[in-house]
């Protein structure tokens, strides 16, 4: 669907994107991940024709964005970092203008506009001036503008920045909905968001692509070791004694104890994770001691991100579970 090859963008002596190549398949949600200033927005701007590349090529559905911009742009919907809204118009007028510019036939236009307004849930604010809308609604109008005319690829640059947690969840649901029928590319510096929404993650650092895979594969690939956490109703000696025969465990660490319980972290080679769990289960069941918790912990996307981007902190340290608490990011 999209081929980016050897893309380079320089601003004077500063190289924002250097020799970036990747390809995007149809009908998936892709996540662009990278710290601020990694070149995410620059790449997206070049892919949508808003910016010219110093060198390299971008092809959308076989059309070169520089050579055949009209054919290529017809396949694209783009929401830049700041939604490009005419603040003195209403959402309804604005979407009609975009529809006309996208060459939707005049008689289909009202239906198409109504359809995207429903999809993005802005139908009830359609006749309000855009400057009077909240940030969340402006973002939705921006998304409505991008998906108007049913483009095959929708590119969203940081679609959830500055929204409150409820809005973030809603926008994410909307993006997942879009991903069922279209190719969606979104950029983010929020790890949990990418993990929750995207099927493929592209990690960019200092203008270079450092990884491209599914979140699960990335975790597996970069996990240096398998780590299992257990909580058992037993004392420390019992635990040590029971686990000693399991050869897969290379390291045993007691992390907490009290009230007849004991928590331990067991480490082994990455491929031995399941063996460790099996061994632990049978050892405790044979001894008749209750195992309250058995949890395989894998390297999180955050660790991978830090490793790949050379220790640059992500903008907002994301919580383990996906709750949308990173609204302040």
């Amino acid at each position: 669907m999209i081929q980016v090859s050897h893309l380079t963008k320089r601003y004077g002596s500063h190289t924002a994107v250097s020799d970036l190549s990747f390809s995007i398949e149809k009908g998936q949600i892709y996540g662009f991940l990278g710290p601020n200033g990694a070149g995410k927005s620059t790449t997206m701007n070049i892919m949508t024709g808003c910016l010219a590349a110093t060198s390299g090529q971008v092809k959308i559905g076989g059309y070169d964005i520089f050579e055949q911009p009209r054919q290529a742009k017809r396949l694209l919907g783009y929401l830049p970092e700041q939604p490009p809204l005419y603040l003195d118009r209403t959402a309804w007028e604005y979407l009609h203008f975009v529809g006309r510019a996208k060459e939707i036939r005049e008689r289909d236009l009202p239906d198409r506009v109504e359809q995207v307004m429903e999809e993005t849930q802005i139908a009830h604010v359609g006749d309000r001036l855009l400057k009077n809308l909240s940030k969340g609604y402006r973002q939705r109008v921006g998304i409505a503008q991008a998906i108007l005319g049913d483009p095959e690829v929708v590119i969203l640059d940081e679609p959830t920045v500055g929204l409150d947690p409820k809005q973030i969840i809603e926008i994410r649901e909307l993006i997942q909905e879009l991903g069922r029928t279209r190719t969606v590319i979104l950029s983010s510096h929020i790890l949990s968001e990418v993990q929750a929404v995207c099927q493929t993650v592209l990690i960019i650092s200092r203008g270079k692509l450092v990884a491209c895979d599914t979140p699960d594969n990335l975790e597996r690939l970069f996990a240096g070791s398998a780590s299992v956490e257990i909580t058992a109703e037993a004392c420390e000696e019992q635990v040590r004694q029971l686990l000693a025969p399991i050869s897969a465990i290379t390291q045993l660490e007691i992390v907490g104890k009290g009230e007849g319980r004991c928590e331990a972290r067991l480490t082994g080679a990455p491929q031995d994770g399941d063996d460790i769990c099996r061994g632990v289960f049978f050892a405790f069941s044979r001894a008749g001691l209750p195992l309250l918790r058995l949890n395989m912990a894998r390297a999180s996307l955050e660790d991978i991100f830090l490793e790949l981007t050379g220790g640059e902190e992500p903008e907002a340290p994301a919580p383990e579970d996906d709750g949308g608490e990173e609204a302040e990011a």
Binding site: N45, T48, G49, C50, P69, R70, Q71, K73, R74, L76, Y78, P80, Q82, P84, L85, Y86, L87, V98, A101, K102, E103, Q145
Partner: peptide
Amino acid sequence: QKTDQLLYSLPL
């Protein structure tokens, strides 16, 4: 207003 980005990305 950065609406020029819209104009650049539209098929115009």
